[in-house]
Design a protein around this nucleic acid. Structure first.
Length: 481
RNA sequence: GCCCCCAUCGUCCAGAGGCCUAGGACUCCGCCCUUUCAAGGCGGCAACGGGGAUUCGAAUUCCCCUGGGGGCACCA
């Protein structure tokens, strides 16, 4: 039996980190078992589903590298992977279920149902609707024929219970007292999630359903439906939910949850995948950093954690730094060049691009988030240095600043060749002569040239900047003292 | 209210009866390296929620409590 799993988001919101994690685990499980990873669109909620959300999901899943083998936009052997295209199929199944006695037309009104639940609550019993408000079978045909509005409900066997082995939580038992005769077809004839999702899982031969814990208590419904369709239920595995720093369910209130927002903030797909894998799973052997392939090699549902995990943005940032440092010069330049140009407001010349490439290894070492790169290198490409107020007041007001700048100007004028080594030698000689320690003697130069007391390494920066610009900046700063 | 899931440092994860004086990672704090900032190295702070039971022995098994999470829609 070949493994077939699916990620089936509803396009009612952007792809968020929790959903991405579910997608990742499905992907890992599929690849670890030589299976097929399918993307489906569970868009039965016509009111809230939008094309924009659907595109966001597809775009970011692709960006994360979680390619699906079959499904949305890719086709496959089982027809459309968009539920809104398959209403007819769901209606047919509902009809068959009514035919076989597994489902029935329900006329209970909302107010009747409310009363039912209220009574149950007061009696301290389960509020799950058991079909007790329905008319006698003999009445049904007539009422339907007369055009009375009705939904179709699944008839849960009572008494009874559903047992299954959850691949992350082991033995699970649900008493049918807790399972309501759920609606499978709305009064307008459209299917609900339970019906559509289950029919699709059966039709597309899904062998393993890996999804969020929020669906755990709906699983008996899906299993009952599957059996009523004459099929064998898949193996279900429920992932614990992600929570925010306050221990509450992760929401926009606590910061960004959309993958797109993380991408824009400068996170790398690899880092996000890696972090999401760490959240609720252990690769063992104290391994923290691993590629998708390594994860696939180690993945086992049995090692997936049962407890809810708090999303820790700080650890994600650390990991992002790890991934940035692991990039090659070319990769690094390729994925940061545009943001540098955006900040600059213009395109870099070829010469400037080379300067950027030269600085890349130095800058990469101190970058956690991609946009930080621009802050670090922009001083190279501007004509007027923007002095950071705090840096200026801390470094340039001391009595040593003028002396340091004067000495630097004299020692750097006419320096040839102009290289990191020669600059370092000259400046170290300058420190010797002036008697200034490195901090006092060099920081003024850093501020004069970069505008800030925090910058990439000084000698290298000056080498890349070139002697003309360096001297101009030193003189300009000197004149301001 | 009813049902379900979960429970080790602040956070994520190791730990499947003696190897635990509870390990790793992030964060934080020192020190080293050092021209700033990083990175790196070294070190430190920090946890088995509580109570019973089983056992020679429990973080590991069982029960209760507590706490957190989820579900109980013509949402998914």
């Amino acid at each position: 039996m070949t493994v077939r799993v699916r990620f089936a988001p509803s396009p009612t919101g952007y792809l968020h980190v929790g959903a991405a994690r579910t997608a990742l685990y499905n992907y890992l499980f599929a690849h670890a078992n030589d299976g097929t990873f399918i993307l489906r669109s569970d868009d039965t909620d016509r009111a809230r589903s939008t094309e924009a959300f659907q595109e966001d999901i597809v775009e970011h899943l692709t960006w994360l590298g979680l390619e699906w083998d079959e499904g949305y936009n890719k086709g496959g052997s089982h027809g459309s992977f968009r539920q809104s295209d398959r209403y007819e199929r769901y209606r047919d199944v509902a009809g068959e279920l009514i035919e076989s006695g597994s489902a029935y037309y329900s006329f209970a009104t909302p107010s009747q149902l409310d009363a039912f639940k209220k009574a149950a609550r007061e009696a301290g019993t389960s509020p799950a609707y058991d079909g007790s408000l329905e008319p006698a079978d003999s009445e049904v045909a007539g009422r339907i024929a007369s055009g009375e509005s009705a939904v179709v409900r699944f008839k849960v066997p009572r008494p009874g219970e559903t047992r299954f082995v959850d691949s992350v939580r082991d033995d699970m038992v649900f008493d049918h007292k807790q399972v309501d005769d759920f609606i499978i077809l709305r009064s307008d004839g459209t299917p609900t999630y339970h019906l559509a999702s289950t029919v699709d899982d059966v039709d597309y031969r899904i062998t393993h359903v890996i999804r969020g814990e929020d669906l755990l208590s709906s699983t008996p419904k899906h299993i009952l439906l599957t059996r009523a369709m004459g099929a064998e239920p898949a193996t279900y595995g429920h992932l614990s939910l992600l929570m925010g720093p306050d221990g509450k369910k992760l929401s926009k209130r606590q910061g960004d949850t959309a993958i797109g927002a993380y991408r824009e903030a400068g996170f790398l797909a690899g880092a996000i995948n890696n972090y999401l894998a760490l959240l609720g799973w252990s690769l063992g052997d104290d391994v923290e950093v691993a590629s998708i392939d390594e994860m696939v090699a180690r993945f086992d549902m049995k090692d997936v954690s049962k407890n809810p995990a708090v999303f820790d943005a700080q650890k994600l940032e650390w990991l992002n730094g790890v991934y940035i440092r692991a990039m090659s010069d070319d990769e690094f330049v390729a994925c940061t060049l545009s943001s540098v140009q955006d900040v600059l407001g213009r395109t870099l010349t070829e010469a400037e691009r080379l300067q950027f490439v030269e600085m890349a290894p130095l800058v990469r070492e101190r970058t956690k988030l991609l946009p930080e790169v621009a802050d670090q290198v922009c001083f190279l490409f501007t004509n007027v240095v923007q002095y950071d107020e705090k840096s200026w007041s801390k470094v340039m007001v001391g009595p040593e600043a003028p002396a340091a700048l004067d000495a630097a100007i004299s020692v750097l004028s006419g320096l040839d060749p102009w290289t990191t080594e020669s600059i370092e030698a000259a400046l170290r000689g300058m420190l010797e002569v002036t008697g200034l320690n490195a901090r006092r003697g060099l920081q003024p130069i850093r501020v004069a040239v970069s505008g800030s007391m925090v910058s990439p390494p000084l000698f290298e920066s000056l080498a890349v900047l070139g002697n003309a610009k360096t001297l101009t900046r030193l003189k300009t700063a000197r004149s301001l003292l």
